[in-house]
Simulated assay, not measured.
Amino acid sequence: MSIIIRTEINSDYTQVHNVNFVAFGNREDEAKLVERIRETENFISQLSIVAEEHGEIVGHLLMSKAEIINGEKRHEVFVLAPIAVKPNNQKQGIGKQLIYEGLNRCKQLGHFIVLLIGHPSYYPKFGFKPAREYGLELIQFEVPDEVFMVCELNEGILNTIKGELKYPSAFFG
């Protein structure tokens, strides 16, 4: 199996839509979320990453800008959402490759905090930990503590940043 992990290009958009559609049970929500994020200033093209096999897009990961707000202080962070792998290609390590690539690219861009809402037994293997334990809060979505997670890409940075994660308006379209 030869999977190529690369940055999404415009001609991938239709296939990326399809990957998100089928990966999330033939529903449009995540595919439409990707499209809305692409239209905003929170979109960073290097953080829209695809997995390609034999010329076909089989996976997609998107990280985009968000903010942690604490009074007057604002810190730019990234949120991981969505990540999708076609059902027939799941359980082959494609999601893992996409996540590691995304986290590495965040570091290269000089950003060291990534947050997500995700499965509590999957994401810890990538360094994600319950975010509320670090003084981070999420009010926009009501989620259990164990699914609201943060990954610190520069050790100690979470000691200096506390506050509420604010997802951009694209997440509420």
Rank of each mutant, 00 (worst) to 15 (best):
E76V: 12
L80D: 03
P130E: 15
T14G: 01
F141W: 10
E52C: 07
E164L: 02
G93L: 07
Q90C: 06
L109G: 09
I117N: 04
P124C: 12
N104M: 10
Q108S: 15
I68R: 04
Y13G: 00
Q140Y: 05
A131Q: 08
A84Y: 03
P168Q: 01
E41C: 04
R105A: 09
N20D: 13
Q108A: 14
E67V: 07
M1Q: 07
N18L: 07
V143T: 11
S169N: 06
N26F: 06
G156F: 06
E56I: 11
Q90R: 15
V16K: 06
N159T: 02
N26I: 01
I99L: 12
I44E: 14
L98P: 09
Q46K: 14
I3R: 03
L33F: 04
C151P: 01
K107L: 07
V16C: 15
I9W: 00
K86Q: 13
N159I: 00
L33S: 09
I4Y: 02
T160I: 01
Q140G: 10
F126H: 13
K65Q: 12
I94E: 09
S11A: 12
G127L: 03
I83G: 01
E146I: 03
N104S: 15
E30C: 02
T160P: 00
L80A: 10
E155R: 06
Y123P: 10
K129T: 09
G135W: 01
G55R: 07
G95F: 08
V34L: 10
R105V: 12
S121L: 14
V16R: 10
D145W: 01
Q92G: 00
Y123G: 07
F128T: 10
K86N: 09
F172N: 03
R6L: 02
L138T: 02
K91A: 13
K166H: 09
I44N: 10
E52D: 11
N154V: 00
Q15F: 01
V114M: 07
G163R: 01
P130Q: 15
E133W: 00
S11M: 08
F148Y: 14
F43C: 05
K125R: 15
Y134A: 00
Q46L: 14
K91E: 13
G95V: 02
S48L: 12
Q108Y: 06
F128L: 08
A81E: 00
V114G: 10
R6K: 12
Q46P: 10
V77P: 03
F171N: 01
N89P: 00
I37M: 04
G95E: 07
F141K: 12
L98K: 05
T160V: 02
I4H: 04
K125C: 06
R27Q: 14
V79S: 11
V50A: 09
F128E: 13
E142S: 13
V114W: 07
P130V: 14
V22T: 12
G135A: 04
Y100L: 15
V77R: 02
I117W: 02
V16D: 03
M149L: 14
V22D: 09
G102Q: 13
F141D: 07
V77C: 09
A31R: 06
L138S: 05
H60R: 07
N89H: 15
K125P: 03
I83R: 02
N70Y: 11
I37W: 03
